[in-house]
Design a protein around this nucleic acid. Structure first.
Lengths: 368, 368
DNA sequence: TCACTCTCCGAAACCGATTTTGTTGACTTA
DNA sequence: TAAGTCAACAAAATCGGTTTCGGAGAGTGA
């Protein structure tokens, strides 16, 4: 029906009613200087013709796109980040209620990331950005700040934050984690983390150290290892730490993916997770409840975080002072079954593991 | 530097060089009727000023947005679909190379889904849609076809397909799965699937039945169950089927999430997966390699699929005949350790399980 | 030298909205 | 009754590009 590509324009409506198109526009934008009679006639025509204003034309004039952007980093072939998936889900839901849309693009390197931001800004495709997985020294934050382009970050950075941000109190969470493990009886606690360029990874590492410090436990740098933030990294991290002469009896992992990998290592070497070795993760991924044993983890709702930052960004766009839009949330520990009192001393664990490693050379060599 | 909001327009460039803006536009769009001298001067100015054309203004005139849309269904609070996450990842990567962007929106119901499509079309925010998780009778396909709006689907439907699509040969995969299990010695094979309104779920169920038929095995409808497509559904499905008087010794699950839930049920009831009960999934999720035992699964690369459909849609937009853009891919079975010859007969398995169910009332009641 | 063809580019129309400015007639107010 | 105010809308400018149209000047052929 009607014309091809069903484009009813404001002119069509104006002509149909017999008014100027500016009048139609004013009705649709709730101006007050229109008589009720005219308003009615126009609204009726709008409904009849099924008119919807072209976002493009409107944006051109108003300079606003009603679209937010997110640039997600993609590695080399590695799967999608499960945290990001839920995060984006949360953003999209929140924006839907507000009538905005989300533009998703990828970047395969830091340079590409900046290029992409630049392109989207220059071509005016988005009104603001949501920046995730902030780095300690984040070039994106620097760039957007310099450009004065609106954005909000999920996570802080080392830069003085003049922008809106939402973050989890990673330090406190990990310090609490250490204290929790200590109270269970663990005295040698290992940390499996990720690249310290990532702000959350650094904070979690720091939290780990602060936790030890607060307990007066001597810190042993040998008990810290940094790995790729996926299951494979967790496997490698567990292997490294548990192969020490005096292995840790508990592993505090920076993400659930790391923890899941670590658990696989334990399982393959007949170490009972939750007693021989305790493993704690962070993220609260649904799948964590289905592995063996169900993973004890710190959780934050990625979905909620997505909604939160979206609303913050809207506020920024509405002119609110970004520095008044900064919030820190606490993570909560979801205890399932991968933590418990140590059944063996560090020494006994070391002996047991060395025996098994010798018994089963290469066993559990995880592909690749 | 320069003006606020760094918007260099085509007029700025034209003025800077001393030509008409139409000339600048022609240079940028590779028209041939421009002298080399002028072309050089303009390109130099463009670079100097860092000019990038406004997508909005360009689109207004050209009627093209260089943006593709995807509307993802969101359930009630349930987490993000891991398959979709990788799929979107693949799309975004492919589009990046082509200079297009992806608009992601969510819909919480069928009606809302259509409304959203409608809105995005009417407001002209996207050039075409990628439709995923097709339903047997898909209102989206009907709507877009009727509107004559370009789209491509991941998955087929029961409608005569005049559109571009990419799909996996689910039927063959599941028929093969059944034959594989039969060759391992399983005679009672269960199927844990999802709502038959979803096309892939129906196809997988059909493949399961065809597999049995091809083997001449009697089909027992009791051995089929349909559940929510997540871990919880898998748990419930396993419980249902394994509680039968003559339980299946193998469970063919429509997705990895279902399989992971099913495995948890087995674990909690001391059934050794891979011998007492065989479980096979579908999706090839990375995490499947890290559960206990590592999950045997059919895999398709969600990322690749995303790239594939993106390119198809581009072709449609370029005017290619959609019906020439239809492709069916085969899934491959990744054997890990959750399948094997049955260690017990169906009867023995039934006896063992009933004993355990009585021993551990309510054990494994998986929260909510 | 005149008419004709090209090459190259300026001027203006156009895309579809929003917003500013201006106009008309009715109604006040002194 | 003249001047001023106000409501209600038309007309035109504007956003930043693309595309059409047309014209000036150089080159070509007769």
């Amino acid at each position: 029906m009607s014309r091809l590509r069903g484009s009813v324009t404001i002119d069509d409506v104006a002509r149909h009613v017999g008014v100027a198109k500016g009048t139609v526009s004013r009705v649709l934008n709730n101006y007050t200087d229109i008589s009720d009679a005219t308003r009615e006639r126009i609204l009726k025509a709008v409904k009849e013709l099924g008119y919807q204003p072209s976002a493009t034309a409107r944006n051109l004039k108003r300079g606003r796109q009603d679209t937010l952007g997110i640039v997600i980093p993609v590695g080399h072939g590695s799967g999608a980040d499960p945290f990001l998936a839920e995060f984006i889900d949360g953003i999209a839901r929140a924006l839907d209620e507000l009538g905005l849309d989300l533009l998703v693009t990828t970047a395969h390197s830091r340079e590409h990331m900046i290029e992409t931001l630049q392109r989207l800004i220059a071509r005016r495709k988005v009104d603001g950005f949501i920046i995730t997985r902030t780095e300690v020294n984040d070039p994106r934050i620097a760039y957007l700040s310099e450009q004065g382009f609106p954005f909000v970050t999920h996570g802080r950075s080392s830069l003085p934050a003049k922008h809106a941000w939402f973050d989890i109190d990673n330090e406190t969470a990990f310090a609490d984690g250490v204290r929790h493990l200590y109270s269970l009886g663990h005295e040698r606690i290992g940390f499996v983390g990720g690249s310290l360029e990532l702000n959350f990874a650094l904070q979690r590492r720091n939290g780990y150290r602060h936790g030890l410090l607060s307990l007066g436990v001597t810190q042993d740098r040998e008990l810290e290892t940094l790995q790729d933030l996926n299951e494979k990294g967790g496997y490698a991290g567990a292997k490294e730490l548990l192969s020490l002469d005096q292995p840790p009896t508990a592993l505090l992992c920076a993400t659930d993916a790391l923890a899941i990998g670590a658990i696989r290592f334990c399982r393959e070497h007949d170490l009972k997770v939750g007693s021989d070795v305790t493993v704690i993760g962070y993220d609260g991924l649904p799948v964590g409840d289905y592995i063996d044993p169900p993973l004890t983890t710190f959780s934050q709702s990625a979905q909620e975080a997505g909604g939160r930052v979206s609303r913050m960004l809207i506020d920024v766009l509405d002119g609110k002072d970004p520095t008044s839009l900064q919030a820190l949330a606490q993570a909560t520990l979801t205890r399932r079954s991968s933590d418990g009192a140590p059944s063996k001393t560090s020494e006994a664990l070391g002996v047991a593991l060395r025996f098994r490693l010798n018994q089963q050379p290469n066993y559990g060599n995880n592909g690749e």
